[in-house]
Simulated scan of single mutants.
Amino acid sequence: MISRGIITLENARKYQAVYQDRLDHFLYGVLGNHSDATFEHLQQVSPILSTVVCAVGALHAASTDYETLRAEFVTLSGALTFSRRNNIDDVRALCIGAFWISDLSSSLVTMAVRIATELQLHRSFAKALQGDRESYLRARLHYLVYACDHHLSIPYGRPPLTRECEAVQNVRDFLDCRHANHDDARLVSHVLRWRVWTEIFDTLGPNVDRPLSDVEILLVRRFGNALDSLRVEWTDKLGPDIHVGNYPWKGVGM
C-alpha cells in the first residue's frame, strides 16, 4: 500500500491504531495473535488483513482515504475467489470486512464460510481443548465465522451457511481451554444465542407473515424462555471491558 502510494505510512499506522486499540474488541478480538502487531509486520504477513484493518480505521476516523482503501480491499478479496493458497488471516480479513463494511457483508461472509470450511477450522476444537494454542486460535476463528454468518443471515430471513457441528454443540467447553479469555466468554455467549435463533428459524421458517398455530405459540414461549435464560446467565458473567466499557452487557441484551 505504501510503496504504491495508496496511503502514507503515517496514516496507515494511525488507522491501524484506531482499529487495533478499540474497534477489534467489539468483535471479540478477531485479530487473534496479531492484536499487538505493528503495521509493517501485519502488512508483510497478510496484505489483505492489513488493508481491511486500515480501511475500517479510516472509516471510523472519517478519512477520505477510506474509499481508496475499500477499493484495494475489494481487489484483494476478489483474488481469494479462485486461490488455492488461502489461509486463516484471509478469513480474519473477510470477517472484519463483513462486520464493518455493510455493503459488502453478504459477499464477504459467504467467502469466509467457504474458506473456513476448506481450512477445516471446525476440526480444531478437540486439540484446542487439549491446550494447543494454534488449534485454539483456529477454533475461535470458526466461532467468529459462525457468529458473523448468523448475524448476517437470520435477521434478514436467510438460512445460515454454517452448521451445528460438534464444536458449536459443545461451545461451552471452549471456555475450558487454557488460553480462553474474556473475549472468548462474550463470543461463546453469542454463539449460544445464535444456536437458539437457528432453532427458531428452522422450526418456524422464514415466513413472518403467516399466523402461528397453537403448538407454535407454545414453542415461541419456550424459545423466549431460552433466550431470557441466556440473557440472565451472561449478564451476570460478563463484566465491563477495559476497551469497550459496558458493551458486553449491552451485547447480551440485544
Rank of each mutant, 00 (worst) to 15 (best):
V109R: 00
I48E: 00
W100S: 11
S63M: 11
T68E: 15
W194R: 03
I101R: 01
T117I: 12
L80W: 01
L219G: 04
W249V: 15
V252I: 12
R4F: 09
S213R: 10
S3A: 12
H179K: 05
V208L: 12
S107K: 13
M1E: 07
T38I: 08
W194S: 07
A116V: 12
A62E: 04
L219Y: 07
C165D: 06
Q120W: 07
V196P: 00
I6F: 06
M254C: 05
D209Q: 09
G131N: 05
E40R: 11
L121I: 08
V52Y: 00
E67D: 15
L137Y: 07
D24F: 07
F125E: 06
R222Y: 10
V30P: 05
S63R: 10
S105R: 02
G78Y: 00
D149C: 12
E216T: 06
D90P: 03
K250V: 13
A180M: 04
V220L: 13
V191F: 04
W249F: 15
L108I: 08
R193W: 03
Q130S: 07
I6E: 03
L204R: 02
S105W: 01
N207C: 10
S107R: 14
L27F: 14
P47Y: 10
V45H: 05
V168N: 01
V171S: 01
D202T: 06
P155E: 04
D65C: 15
L121M: 12
V220N: 03
V232A: 13
I7Q: 02
E216Q: 08
E72R: 14
I242F: 02
L31H: 04
V208F: 06
I6K: 03
D173K: 14
S83D: 09
T64C: 12
L212S: 02
P155L: 08
V171Q: 00
H179R: 05
G239W: 07
V74Q: 10
Y143N: 11
Q169A: 12
Y146W: 11
R231I: 14
S35V: 09
S229I: 04
S229H: 08
D214C: 14
Q16R: 11
R195M: 14
V220M: 11
Y15V: 13
R85M: 13
E134H: 07
L187W: 02
D89A: 14
V191N: 01
S46R: 03
C177S: 06
L27T: 15
P240A: 13
A147F: 06
E166T: 07
W100P: 01
G253H: 12
A116Q: 04
D236Y: 11
D236M: 14
L121W: 04
D90C: 12
R210M: 08
H182D: 04
Q44C: 14
P160T: 08
W197D: 02
N170G: 03
A167W: 00
R158W: 02
R158T: 04
T162C: 13
D236L: 14
I154F: 01
E40K: 12
L119H: 09
A185P: 01
V244N: 05
I115P: 00
V196C: 07
L69A: 15
T8H: 11
I115V: 15
E166Q: 05
R140Q: 13
D202Y: 09
N207R: 06
S83G: 09
T203H: 07
S189I: 08
P159L: 12
A147M: 07
G239C: 10
F201I: 09
S229D: 11
R70M: 13
L104N: 03
S107W: 10
